[in-house]
């Protein structure tokens, strides 16, 4: 069964200034937001599409809006948040460019995590078995998987560049939950996940 990854929560908490306004897209059961509210005293709002998750957020006292990230972000006014988070959700979005543009319109900063399809284990699995692993797609079958976007960290970085986005910080998770802050050689091969703090490029 799919588990909500929490190993990058400490990084997100570190990146977010106390007392700021935070929008968490695809907030799941509200675990991240409620910890940010508790520890960073943020004003947080989550966006979720699943009814069950909405109920669980409300139970925790987390404000949540039932909405579709692909459609409903345009309803938020410009710059209404300090941070817009997209954690473990990018791979499930139909129009990622649009979502990232909207995040940077609605928020002053965006925080996006990317599961790395270029990670060594994924490559070996494809090479030796000719199959995408269940772990990679968060589901045993390709046809019911929430993961519809397979992207490597390098490709994602290229996209950010194309969009004229400034990367303020980036962290990469290696095996055994080791985190590196710099782009080691072969990081696109060795990191299973990357997390980016971005904002609109200063040229704009």
């Amino acid at each position: 069964m799919y588990k909500i990854p929490t190993q990058n929560y400490p990084i997100i908490r570190q990146w977010i200034a106390p007392g700021s306004r935070v929008l968490d897209l695809g907030c799941g059961d509200g675990t991240l937001l409620s910890s940010l509210i508790r520890e960073k005293n943020v004003e947080g709002i989550g966006v979720e599409i699943s009814q069950d998750m909405i109920v669980r957020c409300i139970q925790k006292g987390v404000s949540v809006y039932q909405a579709d990230i692909d459609k409903d972000l345009s309803e938020w006014p410009d710059r209404s948040f300090d941070y817009v988070i997209l954690n473990a959700t990018l791979q499930a979005i139909t129009k990622p460019y649009n979502a990232i543009e909207e995040m940077l319109r609605v928020g002053r900063h965006a925080i996006i995590s990317v599961s790395n399809f270029g990670y060594l284990r994924n490559r070996i699995r494809i090479l030796t078995q000719g199959r995408v692993s269940a772990h990679t797609r968060s589901s045993a079958h390709w046809y019911d998987s929430p993961v519809i976007r397979f992207v490597s960290i390098k490709e994602f970085e290229t996209s950010l560049e194309e969009m004229g986005v400034e990367v303020m910080d980036a962290q990469f998770f290696l095996a055994c939950n080791r985190v590196i802050g710099s782009r080691w050689p072969l990081y696109n091969l060795l990191a299973r996940e990357g997390i980016f703090k971005i904002r609109r490029g200063s040229s704009e």
Partner: peptide
């Protein structure tokens, strides 16, 4: 939802299918 969010009420919104 937008009005009450603007009034700093902690609002949640559910759209039932």
């Amino acid at each position: 939802v937008r009005l009450f969010t603007g009034l700093n009420v902690r609002v949640s919104y559910a759209e039932i299918e």
